[in-house]
């Protein structure tokens, strides 16, 4: 069969993408560059973006970014060794562990987050355990730590899975070759495993950072509404204030932040592989 014969198969997707991705994006963009005029008409304006530049909103953005970076970093810190260990397990164990990692994702996101409220609450499971051992109960819930825990918990699989797939693709023979040439385990890791897993790291970082920077349910539930993130701000504009224009411009700004981060990360990716080429 010639390629051209199956081209029509892409039309449903093109139509889908046009209707539900492209057109909505254009509408969001249009809203972000207009404000409601005196008679209810939309008037072109940069006011929404100007408004965003005030310290209050910048603070919200920076808090979101910092929290997202923190949770991405923690995910990487936990996820990398976890993925590495999984690849070294016997096949049967490997599949079981991977399944266990994925199963929680079958449960609704909101429910999973809500469950943490039961665990971290003042009279929650964690404090009861502490009290059982005669330790004083702590204030876990409604702190930034709780938000961080919720994010890491929810996004960890997005880090482990791409890392696992990158790490499991590394040929055993390259590691063995390095060992034969006298490299100790640390050198093998640093010079053979780590460079080859960079694509997985990049994929993991992007997949965790994106949902983390736009998260709003986690901070509302586990942060007790005390930590306003950009996701919450957008929710507030659409659901409570009814200012679709400002809400849209916030969404655009968030998209720009995500795009910039991805560009930065992929730049590092290229830099690393270039550097790798030079070094080794």
């Amino acid at each position: 069969m010639k390629r051209a014969d199956v081209n029509f198969l892409q039309y449903p997707y093109i139509l889908w993408a046009g209707l539900f991705i492209f057109i909505p994006l254009v509408i969001v963009l249009w809203y972000s560059f207009t404000v409601a005029g005196a008679d209810g008409d939309a008037v072109f304006s940069l006011e929404n973006y100007e408004r965003f530049l005030s310290p209050v909103y910048m603070q919200v953005l920076s808090r979101s970014a910092v929290l997202a970076v923190k949770s991405t970093f923690i995910c990487l810190l936990i996820g990398y060794p976890a993925a590495l260990i999984i690849t070294r397990l016997p096949r049967m164990w490997r599949n079981t562990i991977l399944l266990l990692l994925v199963i929680p994702m079958w449960i609704n996101f909101l429910l999973r987050t809500y469950a943490w409220m039961v665990l971290l609450g003042r009279r929650g499971v964690l404090n009861r355990i502490l009290e059982f051992f005669g330790l004083p109960g702590q204030e876990w819930l409604y702190t930034e730590t709780a938000v961080l825990i919720g994010m890491v918990y929810n996004f960890l699989p997005f880090m482990v899975l791409p890392l696992y797939s990158a790490l499991s693709r590394i040929g055993k023979e390259t590691i063995e070759a390095a060992e034969d040439l006298g490299a100790n385990r640390f050198v093998v890791f640093r010079r053979v495993v780590l460079p080859q897993s960079v694509p997985g790291v990049i994929a993991g970082i992007t997949m965790v950072f994106m949902p983390a920077v736009s998260a709003f349910v986690v901070s509302a539930l586990l942060g007790g509404g005390q930590y306003m993130l950009i996701g919450n701000l957008i929710e507030q504009q659409f659901l409570y204030v009814g200012d679709w224009h400002f809400g849209s411009s916030l969404s655009i700004i968030m998209m720009v932040v995500i795009l910039l981060t991805m560009a930065l990360v992929s730049l590092y990716d290229k830099g690393a592989s270039l550097e790798g080429g030079n070094l080794w």
Binding site: V56, R63, Q226, M228, Q236, Q237, Y240
Partner: peptide
Amino acid sequence: NRIWTEIKS
């Protein structure tokens, strides 16, 4: 709403 954002941030 600006005040609210300020309080919450």
